[in-house]
Design a protein around this nucleic acid. Structure first.
Lengths: 157, 157
DNA sequence: GGCCTTCATTTGACTCGTTCAAGAAAAGCG
DNA sequence: CGCTTTTCTTGAACGAGTCAAATGAAGGCC
């Protein structure tokens, strides 16, 4: 599996190191993992790996475009290896689960705001908030409201 | 000015206090301010106001729907009083400036992802990343890349 | 293959934004 | 005007992520 990642790393001008391979494998196995999870997973391949090393590796990978960083409001940052296409994300308010949504590129009206206020836009980031199937089953009616955006105008204790 | 905010606060079941009025005024004057800015501004009306008080007030306001919290990746959270409509934001990668974008509600194809992977979506959050006019003038060609998302992999229109 | 330069990782401390907790003060009802 | 409840103050704590110095590994060159 190591050889799979070596060429992309070299092409990006990065050295091929054990920590980087371990993190990349961990990323491939966990498509939307936070730094902490990646430390845990990558340690199976490289037990002495430190959290800071993972942060460093991730920063390098994101810097050269081999990984992407996603930061849903109110949750630690997530990383994914799927790059090159601009897809978006579904985030569960209750458990934080993340799923990919393919962007309907081409005919994507949402990506060109009507009035750009003088900005030159180069990317549109879309986050869909909701409840995943499991959480919908577990919480009969909108009971759990864990992750951010819990502004319902309801009663207050 | 105080009387302007009192009714909404009461309607929401919140008491009308000096810190809350000060923060609301500060919010109205600075449409996309972070907590720190709000502390500074609100102190003009209420000099003894503490940062924690502002955090508390903001939490209460967001809780009842009088304010909205926005968290652009890589920057401290911003707050705004414009609620009730689902508008989106333009964020400048270089200076962090934020501008509102009216959402083409009604016919908003971006709000219904093709495959929801079992999620029930109740909100779509869109962030447009780019450069504001000032930063474009100041930095000839894509020089500055300060705020997150410096993955020059495959940005897409 | 071994040496050397350079880049990467380790280790540890530290910053920033934010939250938590206990007591004091103010709001609003009767 | 006094009482109850909410809210503010004060001070400490927390998690995620970053920074810096020193050790260690990667890979080009001979």
């Amino acid at each position: 599996m190591d050889t799979t990642w070596a060429p992309p790393l070299r092409d990006a001008g990065l050295r091929v190191t054990r920590p980087r391979l371990a993190v990349l494998d961990a990323l491939a196995a966990h498509p939307h993992a936070d730094a902490d999870t990646l430390v845990t997973v990558a340690r199976q391949a490289h037990p002495t790996l430190s959290p800071q090393a993972v942060y460093g590796v991730l920063k390098a990978l994101v810097g050269v475009g081999l990984a992407r960083r996603v930061e849903p409001a109110g949750a630690p940052a997530l990383y994914e290896v799927r790059v090159g296409d601009n897809h978006h994300h579904l985030v569960c308010r209750s458990c934080g689960a993340v799923a990919d949504v393919d962007c309907t590129v081409g005919a994507a009206p949402c990506l060109t705001p009507s009035d750009t206020a003088g900005f030159v836009v180069d990317e549109a980031e879309v986050v869909f908030w909701g409840l995943c199937r499991e959480c919908r089953v577990r919480t009969p009616e909108g009971t759990a409201q864990v992750l951010q955006h819990d502004n319902r105008g309801g009663a207050h204790a």
